[in-house]
């Protein structure tokens, strides 16, 4: 018994000495080490730090947006793979976006867990109803490119919003690691795909105004296949 008391006193002493640095985890572990009951032995060693709480809900929504968008791109791609459209280039382009959104969703879930959060599949971004929910994915070529461009911009906007929330130095949500992650994994690639799609629409606009839009679309699709 004496040894036990001595040990616990030592533990508490160390705990108070360290308290300033590792306030919760160390104390709770130290307490759990000397506790006799399991309920008192709970440890509180969270992976959360920085400003993650400020952006967690938006990150969760961003995952669900990625999944929904991956389905939308899959449908758009499917439309171009039917025997009548038969545009392998458009199919490939759109399928690429679908795969990318799906893989990003998984990476985002891993990222949320890395920062001590947990994915919530019920956190969904509210889409503008008329704009997003009654869309038919069977469009013509230039409409499809326009829609893809709008989606990419919308997703870039979401990423920017998360970035801005984590960049205010004067509140509790400041989190340079989140900023770094958004910049590296999203910002650069989004700028590229937005530029590519905008370029494609410029090209198609010119080609479709010419004398033979069928042939132009055929050649444009061939180009997309490469």
């Amino acid at each position: 018994m004496k040894v036990f008391v001595a040990l616990s006193v030592l533990c508490v002493a160390i705990a108070t000495a360290q308290a300033e640095y590792n306030q919760y985890c160390y104390q709770s572990v130290a307490k759990a080490c000397v506790s006799t009951s399991k309920s008192e032995g709970k440890i509180d060693c969270s992976a959360r730090y920085g400003g993650i709480d400020g952006v967690l809900s938006d990150l969760q929504k961003y995952v669900n947006t990625h999944i929904t968008r991956s389905y939308e791109f899959l449908l758009m791609s499917t439309h171009y793979a039917n025997y009548e459209k038969n545009r392998a280039g458009f199919e490939k382009l759109l399928r690429g976006y679908s795969d990318e959104k799906w893989n990003n969703a998984i990476e985002l879930i891993k990222y949320i867990s890395k920062r001590g959060g947990r994915m919530d599949f019920n956190k969904v971004k509210l889409f503008n109803k008329t704009e997003d929910y009654n869309v038919v994915y069977e469009m013509n070529e230039i409409e499809t490119l326009a829609m893809a461009l709008d989606i990419e911009k919308d997703m870039a906007h979401d990423a920017n919003k998360i970035h801005s929330e984590a960049s205010h130095k004067n509140n509790d949500h400041y989190d340079p690691e989140v900023l770094q992650y958004i910049e590296e994994e999203f910002a650069e690639r989004q700028a590229e795909s937005i530029r590519t799609l905008a370029g494609h629409t410029t090209d198609l606009k010119k080609l479709l105004s010419g004398p033979d839009s069928s042939l132009a679309l055929y050649l444009f699709d061939e180009m997309l296949q490469k």
């Binding site: 929904t68 449908l75 499917t78 039917n82 969904v124 929910y133 038919v136």
Partner: peptide, 13 residues
Amino acid sequence: ELRQDVSNLIKKK
């Protein structure tokens, strides 16, 4: 198949 009515093939969520 899937020449038309592709939009209802899968749900959004």
